[in-house]
């Protein structure tokens, strides 16, 4: 047993499948065990579309609120945003842009990673 750092990767955009929101439910959920694991969320590839400020977050709002309470960091890969022509001013304010090199560091730093 022991507290683990868990990286949640979301690689599909909303809303064609349910992974965008179930990934966030899992991010909150993995912190809910005995050891209060520490989740971090990484949006990559088409997953970055969920970072647009105008996206409808209704069905994930509770998870965003919980993650805010937990201090969970939400990152989007800069190169994947750029490849899709998404500018900084189109992003929701709670999303932090990071270069892929930093995202790679997240894979290394976290004990486990889960892809959605």
């Amino acid at each position: 047993m022991g507290q683990k750092k868990v990286l949640i990767n979301i690689s599909d955009g909303p809303f064609g499948n349910i992974f965008y929101t179930e990934g966030l439910r899992a991010a909150v959920g993995v912190s809910a065990g005995m050891d209060e694991n520490i989740p971090t969320v990484l949006f990559q590839a088409d997953g970055v579309y969920y970072c647009l400020k105008d996206v409808d977050r209704t069905d994930s709002m509770a998870y965003f609120e919980s993650m805010k309470g937990l201090g969970t960091k939400l990152y989007a890969v800069e190169e994947d945003l750029a490849a899709r022509g998404i500018a900084s001013d189109e992003l929701a304010p709670d999303i932090t842009r990071i270069p892929r090199q930093k995202a790679f560091e997240l894979f290394k730093e976290n004990d486990h990673n889960i892809d959605f």
Binding site: S11, Q44, A45, E79, R100, Q101, A103, F104, F107, K108, D115
Partner: peptide, 22 residues
């Protein structure tokens, strides 16, 4: 790290990380 690639699209994402990993 072991990059477990189970499909083409995600495998292409994995490739970008694996290239950084000696």
């Amino acid at each position: 790290m072991v990059y477990l690639c189970g499909e083409k699209y995600l495998g292409q994402v994995a490739t970008q990380y694996a290239q950084m990993d000696p």
